[in-house]
């Protein structure tokens, strides 16, 4: 086998490339590939193991420096999600908090409204700005991305309130006195689920808005 046709392991190389600061990508990846090919002439499998070890260890050395913002953002979402799930479990089980129609009433219109108020390009730029600390966007782009999450979060609450009111009216219109003691509780719980979903979306969007504001402040 011609050693120069042996390729370094793809995924560890891509992970390293993603993590590395821009100015070091070329020299570091070049050095690794050069030494990999030299080692592959002797033992291709050992060369692959060596490359993976170098790439992953080097990536973790740079991870906190280059992806600190992303890691803290993900950590905050994990903490929020974890505590929410804990509350749901202690509240009597996750099942009672899941209702697909309620979720659709909140997520679909709020997403559509947010896209209509901004654009899908704004959404992809916003996600890129949130997930990539090295991304360079101008103030206008970041402000537009912030607007997307603002609209998404606000609309989620509003659709949650609106749907809860629809539920309340439906309850008020159809409930008979005989049904009250047995059915009111579960029906009311579903009614306010939309509100809960709305506030959940708003919480996540609020974090995204503030992170984008932080990036805007750094531009000034």
């Amino acid at each position: 086998m011609n050693p120069i046709t042996i390729q370094p392991p793809v995924w560890s190389g891509r992970f390293l490339q993603w993590v590395l600061p821009s100015k070091l990508k070329e020299p570091i990846l070049g050095d690794l590939e050069e030494e990999f090919l030299s080692r592959a002439q002797i033992n291709p499998n050992a060369a692959k193991r060596w490359y993976q070890q170098q790439a992953l260890r080097s990536a973790f050395q740079f991870l906190w420096k280059t992806k600190r913002g992303l890691m803290m953002f993900i950590f905050s979402l994990v903490v929020f999600g974890g505590l929410t799930i804990m509350a749901l479990v202690w509240g009597g089980g996750i099942d009672m908090f899941i209702d697909i129609p309620s979720a659709m009433l909140v997520f679909i219109p709020s997403t559509v409204f947010a896209l209509a108020a901004t654009s899908s390009k704004t959404l992809s730029q916003g996600i890129s700005a949130l997930l990539n600390d090295e991304s360079q966007f101008d103030k206008q782009t970041l402000t537009n991305a912030q607007l997307f999450f603002k609209v998404l979060g606000q609309t989620a609450i509003l659709t949650g309130i609106f749907s809860s009111l629809i539920g309340a009216i439906a309850i008020g219109s159809h409930f008979q006195a005989d049904d009250f003691s047995t059915s009111f509780g579960p029906v009311f719980a579903v009614c306010i689920l939309t509100l809960t979903y709305g506030f959940g979306v708003k919480t996540i969007c609020y974090v995204a808005e503030q992170k984008l504001q932080f990036k805007i402040n750094q531009l000034v």
Binding site: L24, P27, I28, D31, L32, E34, E35, Q54, R57, S58, A59, Q61, F62
Partner: peptide, 22 residues
């Protein structure tokens, strides 16, 4: 980078990751 890393490995038997080196 690579030549420095290899010299350190050969001379003082210290296997440094390329990330630590840079």
């Amino acid at each position: 980078g690579s030549s420095i890393r290899q010299l350190l490995a050969e001379t003082i038997e210290r296997d440094v990751t390329i990330g630590a080196l840079y």
